[in-house]
């Protein structure tokens, strides 16, 4: 059976790798078999970080070079990611593959050819006007994660305004607020994945 493929996109430094790291133990607790693909812009740093985390068999983590085209590798031409996913499926038969995009712009989206469901991760320190700008990532993602809410008072980000803008931009789609450094909100993200991507099929 093909794995359920979950995409994680968003700007550089928004917390995509941290979210993947936070989700891995939750998948493990529910005996959901996972593999990970990271798309690094310049290095295989993210792949190495996940491998070293001790949260997953390092063999189940693949780093993909996207030729300086992070959005191309997840949208227009996802060949390199499709090939990596097929390789992981052949070798490990995972239930779920987490595909982390390289840091990208606000218009980045995942091809439905590559993933079954995807989340867009932004953070309040990147500017509290991001939801108001209504980039495609914010509008189209199955789940919007607004991360680093603990930093809001330190960067003059108005959390109330962000919440209002998110509601207006995504009236019918899920959005969650997190502080992934402390783990705040990660359980809600996992529950949303189970509800809207896995449909409860893989959970005990």
């Amino acid at each position: 059976m093909a794995a359920v493929r979950l995409g994680f996109g968003g700007p550089v430094g928004s917390g995509k790798t941290r979210l993947v790291e936070r989700l891995l133990p939750l998948f493990s607790e529910e005996s959901i078999s996972v593999a990970v693909i990271t798309n690094d812009l310049v290095t295989d740093e993210d792949a190495e970080r996940v491998k070293r985390s001790g949260l997953i068999d390092p063999e189940r983590v693949l780093g993909v070079e996207s030729g300086a085209c992070p959005h191309t590798a997840i949208r227009e031409d996802p060949s390199v990611n499709l090939e990596a996913a097929e390789r992981l499926e052949r070798r490990f038969q995972p239930d779920v593959i987490l595909i982390e995009s390289g840091g990208d712009n606000l218009a980045a989206t995942f091809s439905s050819e590559l993933v079954d469901w995807w989340a867009f991760v932004i953070d309040v320190s990147g500017g509290d006007d991001i939801p108001r700008k209504r980039g495609l990532g914010v509008l189209r993602a199955d789940l919007l994660v607004v991360n680093k809410i603990d930093l809001a008072p330190h960067v003059d980000a108005d959390l109330e305004r962000i919440t209002g803008d998110v509601s207006l931009a995504r009236p019918d789609r899920a959005s969650l607020f997190t502080d992934l450094r402390s783990g705040l909100g990660v359980k809600a993200v996992f529950e949303e994945i189970k509800r809207s991507a896995l449909f409860g099929k893989l959970t005990g």
């Binding site: 030729g67 590798a73 996802p78 390199v80």
Partner: peptide, 11 residues
């Protein structure tokens, strides 16, 4: 270049 065969990943 829109042919999706992964050419963009190579140099």
């Amino acid at each position: 270049s829109a042919l999706p065969i992964g050419r963009h990943a190579h140099a």
